[in-house]
Amino acid sequence: MSVSVQEADFDAGAEIAALSAGRDDVGAVASFTGLVRADKQADAAVAARVGADETPALQGGRAKDALLAVADDAPPAVQVMTLEHYPGMTEKALEAIVDEARGRWDLYGVRVIHRVGRLVPGDRIVFVAVASAHRGEAFAACEFIMDYLKTRAPFWKKEETPDGGRWVDARESDDHAAGRWDAGK
């Protein structure tokens, strides 16, 4: 089973070990673990508004004003994230990405895990590990799988903020990251 979509957490160390268990031809295992990251934009906006050159006595009151202002126009800090997916298609899409990676590089093993459901900052969300004879193929295939996963696997993130739910927008940089693998094809 090379692809899993699950609510449960995973043990990256155990998954990495499994890729070379019982065989002596694996020379490299490259892995990537993605985590849910807290949104620091609101905090940074407060710091910028308060200013570093004011006296500490002023900063107390100003910081409070700034916090109130930030609440109006800065993205609210992310508390909780919910991952939606397309059961059936998601697994197929991930398997197709793994097959494409196997067609491009000589890989001995691949493992992809993507979590769904409710996740909080600090939680593991995605895992990709690739085993091969040499590090070059392992590194490249691992990055390729992540880049394609970002643009081709049907997952959607919804952030729960103090102001309500907010669907995350797709990023053009992800399309560019996936697109660069086509250039050398």
């Binding site: 298609m89 993507h114 992540m146 996963l149 970002k150 081709r152 696997a153 049907p154 669907w167 992800d174």
Partner: peptide, 10 residues
């Protein structure tokens, strides 16, 4: 047939 916004996993 499925319709959906651009994907945002990973």
């Amino acid at each position: 047939v499925a319709f959906f916004p651009p994907v945002t996993g990973g």
